[in-house]
């Protein structure tokens, strides 16, 4: 079973749609009121990005999206930095390191093991 490296662990097994994007900045790209990034909703989905760029304000934006119930269910990034980890912890969004090619996966948020949706 493919496994993503868990950096900020969550709980439970979830099945969710995967939204793949290029590098994003939480500040400016994520609308925390609607959970949209460039017109696509990431709320309740698994957001897959190569990395997150942008200012230290980023964590506050993701935190606000979580407060509004509009945060992604989990974030998967190829490379991570202190800012992305801080954002994930503040917002309580599970964070994994790696890549996902499937459009829908069933993932164990506690250990990062996943398989494509059946």
């Amino acid at each position: 079973m493919p496994t993503l490296k868990p950096l900020v662990r969550g709980k439970g097994l979830i099945k969710a749609q995967v939204i793949r994007m290029g590098p994003i900045s939480f500040l400016g790209d994520l609308n925390p009121e609607t959970g949209e990034v460039a017109g696509r909703s990431v709320s309740g989905k698994i957001l897959v990005v190569p990395y997150v760029r942008g200012s230290t304000v980023g964590p506050y934006v993701l935190w606000h999206a979580a407060l509004k119930g509009k945060a992604p269910l989990a974030i998967v990034a190829k490379s991570v930095d202190l800012m992305l980890v801080t954002a994930a912890v503040l917002a309580g969004v599970p964070l994994f390191q790696g890549e996902v090619q499937d459009d829908c996966i069933e993932i164990d948020l506690s250990d990062g093991r996943y398989e494509p949706c059946r």
């Binding site: 500040l27 925390p32 200012s55 230290t56 304000v57 506050y60 934006v61 935190w63 606000h64 503040l90």
Partner: peptide, 14 residues
């Protein structure tokens, strides 16, 4: 991240 200009409303609330 102290200026209201940079942290904005979300930072202020946090």
């Amino acid at each position: 991240g102290v200026s209201y200009l940079t942290v904005g409303e979300y930072g202020a609330k946090f």
